[in-house]
Write a protein that binds this DNA or RNA. Structure first.
Lengths: 364, 364
DNA sequence: TGCAAAATAGTAAACGCTTACTATGGAAGT
DNA sequence: ACTTCCATAGTAAGCGTTTACTATTTTGCA
């Protein structure tokens, strides 16, 4: 079907044929400069000329070569975003915000996934650096490995030197002298509020399940959890915290294991909603009712939370907004650096949303 | 914090400083050609020289400019993917497959969202054309508007002429003479199988809810639905099919409306799992039990299906595989065009997965 | 009626890399 | 010891745009 009647020539090399601006210029009978100007519209071109150019463009199906443009011009009109996994709702919603805002600001969006591998993350930042994106947005918690931090800091500096910017979305600063922008949310505060709510419902022995170890997000949530306990004068039992991972699978399997022991608890604080879904299944399979027998809460408030039965009480995090703010902040014209530093940090709020997975502790 | 002690110079122009290959060459005391070769490794370079180059690269934090490389070389090592919405699991899982396979084949992934706007979709294809991506993957069902089809066909040809390729993932062909590749799944067959299953359970009056009108996916699913009915000699009642949209919101609101009428049905076939979730909520609010009072099935088998209660019986579609296959197919070396056309179409299978949302119809 | 100032259009120099060609030096062959 | 070859390295010509400059018309006004 792709055959025309030309006698099959020798196997063509992968010819990147492509209509160029020169073709358009020739076809319209003007110079390439004029074509460029007629298209970008940043320089006066006579109406008649512009029209001829547009006709030629349409006739030839010309579209500019973004790479040539990026090379000659100053900006690539592209932002890069690095997330763990495209299909994980936590990241997907942030990515949606990024994509929407980028698109609203006329930018394309280069997306890459680390699959939780921090070495890969470093490599991806370099890949994005090669692309000369206007910004690179790093999403989600980070490892607290010092070597890794140093390497990332180096990249932040390189990006800055290139006129780009590294924005940390939902992840802690790389240090006071590292040129980055940050949009964060109150992880510790959300965990505090949720824990306090559980306590107010009479719970004292609260199991904390999930979140990778040595990970900023886990650390912050756990800190809020512990602070709330301390604030109410409740002794902290290390046997009740079970770090591990953020997935549904981890929630399920770890809860199964715990259920096989005789650990005593009346509520479970899952490190995020996915973990909560796994925990819920384990509880369900054990014949334990939520919230009658055990209360359960999550974190993030992804749509899934509202589909679970019982509907999950959780901490709402404005994921999409975070994505939007990240690109807004990244693209904010920090050119007029009026000494008074334009704010390089945005913090969005979290709040708990009460649904049906928590019940007051009945006196036993 | 980004302040250093240098007396604030006059407002620097947005200088895209950047270490270039020339800097590396100078620093290593070799020519740029040698640096290029040492890095790409496609031409012999003395070990000692290569080492000096690598030192210089590391010392300067050099990364190649992908745009210059794309301009000079032949490929951009980038694939583009156009989806409806980054956060919709149907698309997110396909996107995950695309991202993973692209990354496995050393490609970057440019992702864009249409928000269901077909004009925007056309514009996005052009944007990707500007980027000279090695392939552009169009995901999900398509409008059957002829004008739109023609425009898309033009773009497919342009892409083909540029040495790129348009791949249709889960969407019908643009016509016999349009150069595209396709990875599809058996929409009609899945719907047929599911409907037949419902019938085998005794259901005769099955409500079909969801799916945009004049949309390829809707048409195919509905076709399978009707064919199954016909095969069993069941009269088709037009009052039972309610097209509209693919979202949870549509499923919920339309089901509410239907429940307010006296329409008679014993099972609901939701156009996809999201719609099913909405339908389920409406049913639940009405005090109807699933599957005791009404059976419910969905389509796609996104993870949500397994979180609903009852767990949703649905049609499994290997979304991630489809994404993977799309890039595999797109990047397959169709250079050795041995007359015998290498296959430009892949079709993945679907199958129904039985869970708990369907019950045999009890004789009333 | 002239002449300066707009308004337009053209020329050509980057932008940072890849790669065909060309050059150089020593190893190998006789 | 003198060619003939390799193995390396360098030169320079693009790749398709943008944009400072420069050149040519027009237009506006005295």
């Amino acid at each position: 079907m792709k055959q025309n009647n030309v006698p099959a020539a020798s196997p063509l090399p992968p010819q990147r044929s492509g209509v160029t601006i020169t073709d358009v210029a020739t076809s319209a009978g003007v110079s390439v400069a004029t074509v460029s100007r007629a298209l970008s519209g940043n320089y006066p071109v006579a109406a008649a000329t512009r029209e001829r150019v547009q006709h030629a463009v349409a006739a030839l199906g010309y579209v500019a070569n973004a790479h040539a443009r990026a090379l000659a011009g100053a900006t690539t009109r592209t932002v890069g975003i690095i997330i763990n996994d495209v299909a994980d709702p936590f990241f997907a919603y942030i990515a949606r915000g990024v994509e929407r805002q980028a698109s609203a600001e006329g930018r394309l969006c280069l997306i890459m996934a680390t699959h939780g591998d921090k070495e890969r993350e470093l490599a991806l930042v370099d890949l994005l650096r090669e692309q000369r994106t206007d910004a690179v947005i790093l999403v989600g918690g980070a490892s607290d490995d010092p070597r890794y931090r140093k390497q990332m800091a180096d990249r932040a500096r390189a990006l800055d030197a290139d006129g780009s910017v590294l924005v940390l979305c939902g992840r802690p600063s790389l240090g006071p002298n590292v040129p980055t922008k940050t949009v964060g949310y109150d992880n510790e505060g959300g965990a505090f509020a949720m824990t306090d709510y559980l306590i107010s419902q009479g719970h004292r022995r609260i199991l904390y399940v999930g979140g990778p170890q040595n990970f900023s997000t886990t650390a912050a949530r756990l800190a809020g959890f512990r602070r709330a306990l301390a604030a109410r004068g409740i002794e902290h039992d290390p046997a009740l915290v079970h770090e591990g991972a953020f997935g549904r699978g981890f929630g399920y399997s770890r809860m199964k294991e715990i259920l096989a022991t005789s650990l005593d608890f009346t509520a479970v604080f899952a490190a995020n909603d996915m973990v909560a879904a796994g925990v819920l299944q384990a509880l369900e399979e054990q014949g334990l009712r939520v919230p009658e027998d055990v209360s359960l809460v999550g974190y993030d408030d992804v749509p899934l939370a509202n589909e679970l039965r019982p509907r999950l009480t959780t901490v709402h995090v404005p994921l999409e907004d975070m994505g939007r703010e990240s690109v807004r902040l990244a693209l904010a014209d920090s050119a007029h650096d009026t000494g008074a530093s334009s704010d390089n940090t945005i913090t969005v709020g979290t709040h708990i949303v009460l649904r049906n997975s928590v019940a007051p502790l009945a006196p036993r």
